[in-house]
């Protein structure tokens, strides 16, 4: 009888650095989800009017616990963006003539758009 080696269903991702990175990437979704819920909460608050917005949303964000969570979320969200752009060239390679556009160029273009978009949003949000 052929021998089947056991595979751990719960710790496999610790066996290899690439597996671990992958698992970390998957778990960024927790914070993406949390932030999406926060946005939803904000939308609900706006829909409930001026007072509710400040009292039940914006002021809640300033609590120390919330601040810590927001910091972590923001960092993870940035990590998600970088990890996502890194693999985009694999999912959507672009062929120009015979040759393929180097992955770095595609990822680079993403970064340029990302930075420009972010600056525009920051400007209109009144950050500067």
């Amino acid at each position: 009888m052929a021998y089947v080696r056991p595979v751990s269903k719960t710790t496999w991702y610790l066996k290899d650095r690439n597996y671990t990175i992958h698992m970390i990437n998957e778990l960024t979704s927790v914070f993406i989800g949390l932030y999406a819920l926060l946005l939803l909460w904000g939308i609900g608050a706006v829909a409930s009017g001026d007072k509710a917005y400040y009292q039940f949303f914006l002021e809640c964000l300033t609590s120390p616990g919330m601040l810590v969570l927001l910091w972590v979320t923001t960092i993870v969200i940035f990590y998600h963006a970088i990890a996502w752009f890194k693999v985009t060239p694999k999912a959507m390679p672009i062929q120009k003539g015979e040759a393929f556009v180097p992955g770095g160029v595609i990822a680079g273009a993403h970064y340029v758009i990302w930075v420009l978009f972010s600056l525009v949003v920051l400007y209109f949000a009144g950050v500067f």
Binding site: D16, N18, Y19
Partner: peptide, 19 residues
């Protein structure tokens, strides 16, 4: 496939199955 990219890293012929 959950896109770990490890297949492409392992490929000795530089094929990119993950892609």
């Amino acid at each position: 496939c959950s896109f770990t990219d490890t297949c492409s890293i392992a490929c000795p012929k530089h094929v990119d199955p993950a892609s």
